[in-house]
Amino acid sequence: MTRLREHSSDLHLSAGPFGGVAAASLDEADRVDAFGTDVAATLAWAVGVGAARGNQRSLADDWSFLAAVASRDVGAARILEPHLDALDILDQAHRDGYDLDLASVQADSESSWGVFAAEGAGTRLEARDDGSGWLLTGTKPWCSLAQHLSHALITAWVGDERRLFAVALQTPEVTPHEGPWHAKGLPQVVSAPVDFAAAPAAPVGESGWYLRRPGFAAGGIGVAACWWGGALPLRDALVDAARRDGADQLSRVHLGRVDAALWAARLALRSAAREMNGLPQASHPATLAARVRAIVADAVETTLAESARALGPLPLVADEAHARRVADLEIYLRQHHGERDLARIGADIAEGRGSW
C-alpha cells in the first residue's frame, strides 16, 4: 500500500481546543513501535491521550480523532475507543451528580479502561450489596482486552435491571478467559468471557442509568467513526490504482463507488455531530445513532468489496499492512448487527420515534 495519507481534517468541523492535543497525540502515535499490534505500548499511549484531552471538546473533535487513529491502524482505534468511552461515561456520571468511589477499586488517572456491556446466552453477571460494598459474581461475555486492562466499566444485573459498575480486573477474584479467539482480524484484541467471584465493584449511576444516559448513542457513533477512518487508506489504494498508466475505466468505477459511499458516510457523521451538539437537539438519539452506524457500515462494506475487486489478491498476500487492515475491519464491523439494527430503526419509525 502507498504511504498513509493524512486524513484527520476530512471529518473535522472546527478548530476546537482538542485540535492541538490531537495533533500531538497523533505525532506520538507515529513514534510508538508496533502501534496497534503491541497492546501494552498502545494502551500506554491511550492512557496518555485520555489524560491530555481535557473536557472542552465537541463530538466532531472526538470522532475526527478516532477516525485519524483508525486511518493509521484499526487495532489502535479498537484499543483506544473503549478507553475514551469509559472516561466519557465517568465524566458524565460526575456531571449527573453521582458520587463515584473509584478509589475503592484502586482506579486513578493511570488506569486503562474497557467497557463490557454485552450479554450472552447461558451467562449472567449479578451484583449484590453485602452491606460492606458491592460484589460481582458470574460470567460476562465479550470482554475485550480483559487480560491487559487494569479496570473496566461493566454492566451487571441487580434484580431485573442492569446497573453499571467499575471493577479492577487484575485481582484474584477476576479470571479472564484466553479464548476462544481464533480471529485473523484483530488477533491482539482478544474478546472472551471473564469470570467474577465476589469481585469488589463501585456503582456508576443508578440502575438503568447507563443505557438511558445522554451520551450512550454518541458512544455508538464513535465506533462508526473508527470504521470510517479505517477504510480511508483502502480508498487511497484505489486512487493510486486509478492513476496508474494503463488504468482502465473499471478502476475508476470502483473508485467512484467507494468515494461516493465514504463521502455520504462522512456527511452522516458530520450531521450527527452537529445535531447531538444541539443544533438542533436530537429528539431520538438512539435512532440517529442507529442510522449513522448503518450508513457508515454499508459504506465500509462497499469499500471492502470494491477494493477486493479492483486490486485483486496481490495486496492481500503481499502487503502486510493492507491485509491486516482488511482483516481488522471485517472483524470490527461485526459490532454492527446488520438487519437486526435496521429492524430497530424500522421499529422506531413505525412507533413514531426519530422522524426527520
Rank of each mutant, 00 (worst) to 15 (best):
M1G: 12
R5W: 14
E6G: 13
S9T: 11
L13I: 09
P17I: 04
G19D: 11
A24K: 10
D27S: 11
A29H: 00
D30Q: 11
V32S: 05
V39Y: 00
T42N: 07
T42L: 01
A44H: 10
A51G: 08
A51H: 09
R53G: 07
S58W: 03
D62W: 00
D62T: 09
W63E: 03
S64Y: 00
A68Y: 02
A68H: 03
A70K: 00
E81F: 07
H83T: 05
D85S: 10
D88V: 05
I89Q: 02
I89M: 04
D91F: 09
R95C: 10
D99M: 14
Q106D: 11
A107M: 01
W113P: 02
A118K: 05
E119N: 14
S132L: 12
L136A: 08
K140I: 04
W142D: 15
W142V: 15
Q147N: 15
H151C: 02
E161Y: 02
R162K: 11
L164M: 09
A166E: 01
A166G: 05
Q170C: 03
Q170F: 11
T171A: 07
E173V: 02
E173S: 06
P176K: 02
W181T: 05
H182C: 14
H182I: 10
Q188D: 13
Q188F: 05
F196C: 01
F196T: 00
A199D: 05
A201P: 01
A201V: 04
A202C: 08
V204R: 01
E206T: 11
G219P: 06
W228T: 07
L232T: 04
L234M: 08
D236G: 02
A237Q: 05
D240V: 09
R244C: 09
D245E: 14
G246Q: 04
A247Q: 08
L250G: 14
V253A: 10
R257C: 13
R257M: 15
V258S: 03
V258Y: 00
D259I: 12
L269H: 00
S271W: 06
L279N: 15
L279F: 15
Q281C: 13
A282C: 10
S283G: 15
H284F: 11
L288D: 01
R291K: 10
A294N: 06
A294T: 07
D298L: 07
E301D: 14
T302C: 13
E306H: 00
A310H: 03
A310Q: 04
P315D: 03
L316P: 03
L316A: 13
V317E: 08
D319W: 03
A323V: 03
R325S: 03
L329F: 06
R334F: 12
E339Q: 12
R340S: 15
D341G: 08
A343E: 13
G346S: 14
G346M: 13
D348T: 10
I349Y: 10
G352S: 07
G354D: 05
G354T: 07
S355E: 15
W356C: 12
